[in-house]
Amino acid sequence: MFKFGFAKTITDINEEDKTDELEWIPAFKLEITPEQVGVKYGTDYYTETKVFPDFNLKLIRSDKVVKDLTKHNCQNIIEAETQHSDLIPAKYEGGLKIWECTFDLGQYILEEQIELKDKLVMDLGCGAGLIGLIALLKNSTVHFQDYNAEVLKSMTIPNVLLNCDNRTNIFTKCEFYAGDWASLATLLDDEENRKYDYIFTSETIYNPDNHKKLYEIFKRKLKINGLGFIAGKIYYFGVGGGMRQFEDLVLKDGYFDVKMVWRSQDGVNREILKLTRKQHQEHGLLGI
């Protein structure tokens, strides 16, 4: 049975929320420095693995990252490690671990031969950045987003650098955003109001309290003909979120058509949903 490693039960968290509102980190853009681009990684610091067919990726070892972040007194990570927790709401959102549905989504993208060349892609809740790496290696421009800046700095960005033949491409082909989804759409509006051909996200629907924030990113930041893909489990034991809850939210709003394009019943049921803007919405936007 899949279950998130929460330090407290969901009941405890709900009780705390009633008296002490969670303070989510506002979204911000993370700038890459030449010093970061020039870092050399020893072979003991990463593993080389064929995560997907024809994709031999170099990936930073999470145990090394945790050790470094602990050494540098990163409190969010120290608290999660101390409590043996994969998630601490509004503090640490599990980005140092590659979750199961990420592999489902990556495999689906490759098997369906989704056209990524010269597209603008958002890897939302990216963690290690595997989905964004696929897009990048298929000649997309990719924006990586994760809640924790520490994850982006210590895992996502190193993974991008390890898998790029020309490291300087990171300045023109990649952008990195940290913080909460509630303020992300507004921040992206300020960044030339760019919209995406594809928004991919995996294992981000575990907390039903964040469903609306997540959905708003798709609604506000996909191009008229853009597509959204959400990979996740039918239900997240111990947390309360799941695919049907998120799907119901989208369907009630009436802005997107929702189609289940992939499903596995091996172990905990997993799905991939595709969001396509409804035709009348397209015409409405074209008329603005």
Rank of each mutant, 00 (worst) to 15 (best):
L184V: 09
I230L: 07
D253E: 15
H211A: 06
P34S: 12
G267C: 12
G287D: 14
C174W: 05
Q75F: 08
K221G: 06
D266T: 14
G5I: 00
I10W: 04
V239M: 11
K195C: 10
L227H: 09
T141M: 01
N14A: 04
V65M: 04
F229A: 05
G287M: 13
V39M: 11
N76A: 15
S202T: 03
D190W: 00
A7V: 09
G5H: 11
N73L: 13
N193V: 11
L69T: 12
N225P: 00
Y41R: 07
D123A: 13
S202R: 02
T9L: 01
D104S: 04
A182V: 12
F229P: 04
D189H: 15
E175Q: 14
I109R: 00
K71D: 05
L136P: 02
N139M: 00
F2D: 08
I230S: 01
D68K: 10
D197E: 02
D54I: 04
G5Y: 07
M122S: 02
I224H: 03
I288L: 14
L184D: 03
D197C: 00
E100R: 13
C74Q: 12
G129W: 10
L59F: 05
A149Y: 12
L130M: 09
E79N: 14
L275M: 08
E282R: 15
N166C: 08
Y177H: 13
E48W: 01
K195H: 13
E216M: 08
Y235R: 07
L137H: 00
A185V: 12
K97Y: 02
Y196C: 02
L30C: 14
I78G: 04
V151R: 03
G129F: 08
S85F: 06
D253G: 07
G226Y: 02
D146C: 14
F200Q: 00
E191D: 12
A135N: 13
D180Q: 10
I217F: 03
G179F: 08
I10L: 05
N163S: 09
T172A: 02
G254M: 10
